[in-house]
Write a protein that binds this DNA or RNA. Sequence first.
DNA 1: GTCTATACAGTGATAGAC
DNA 2: GTCTATCACTGTATAGAC
Lengths: 204, 204
Amino acid sequence: MAAHFSTKDRILGAAEELFAQYGFAGTSLRQVTSRADVNIAAVNYHFGSKENLVNEVFRRRMDEMSERRLALLREAVARQPGELEPILAAFVEPALALAQDRHGGGAFIRVIARAYAEKNDGLRKFLSDRYGHVLREFAKAIAVCVPGLSKEELYWRLDFLAGALTYAMADFGLIKRPAGVSEAAHRQRAAQELIRFAAAGFKS
Amino acid sequence: MAAHFSTKDRILGAAEELFAQYGFAGTSLRQVTSRADVNIAAVNYHFGSKENLVNEVFRRRMDEMSERRLALLREAVARQPGELEPILAAFVEPALALAQDRHGGGAFIRVIARAYAEKNDGLRKFLSDRYGHVLREFAKAIAVCVPGLSKEELYWRLDFLAGALTYAMADFGLIKRPAGVSEAAHRQRAAQELIRFAAAGFKS
DNA sequence: GTCTATACAGTGATAGAC
DNA sequence: GTCTATCACTGTATAGAC
């Protein structure tokens, strides 16, 4: 099994690389199938549409990241109960790490941005159905640390954190990684700054 | 003059409406030119490409918003010197108002999201060249309110604010506008919550 | 300059043979 | 499951009319 890749897997692999490098619009299905050494019609047979292929590439990564977030969250709550910062770190770091992953990190952040860019309610519903429980877990854990906060305020602030994090993942802001600093170090810095910023926000 | 619209203006108007409603990918140039009652080739004659047309639609709105931000900033600094919250309000409110504008607000937020989604360095450079001075003005004003902050920390936090704001503009998070609340009221609430969150973050 | 008719290469998708 | 052939449609380019 391990040495052999099915047509479907080859398509997914090629799509992940090409999407990350050239974006969705910039990648044609013919490029994907050519790299995967597969016939053009195989994409629609296995995935139904280009959009579905995009979502599938995305889902694989998102599942991993959600698992990692929850694992770190459990660890944080067990080791440092009542402390907010480790919880925020559990939320932030897997996302930043994924965004920097060379194989597909670019594609990942692009799917999120695309969900903004199109008013794609289907994708939004998919996200909230499949990963809503992760956010609820974090909300519960944060509520313990900041007991004065109303549920509404808590969710507003989680949204703000998610937004700031998404921006940071896309490397979109004013802050550019200086030439002398490694990607990993820059990411570490971003995480640290964001956690501090958000912690103050949650506690206000 | 006022009663007559040139071919170029008609294209811009039609594009703004269609982009806001169906997104970019979802709008073909033939739809645009058909609504504007103009020949398909006119788009490339006046704008060079679809991408350029998108950017032009965007620039008109962004210019207005930047003016409004700077006006409110001057007002805030003059009336309540040394106070952080009014400065943040001057940054946040014009953006949220624009995002909710029925005529083209949706298109506006989509352009930003698209700049994320594609690694569109051209658009990024355009943004920083044309609107970088606005951010620098805000940075200067905030630095007066939070004198302990290093320049680097200040810019990190401005990025986080911009990210959270973008998310809120796209109406993307967990928080949905409840049925009984008007759009204007919901926006007011979002602004108020974000300002409070960010103010605490900047002061930390 | 402004605009039009037309053509072009490339796209995602699909029907039907094997 | 996989292929070929074909479809309607896309953004773009150009030659030429006014």
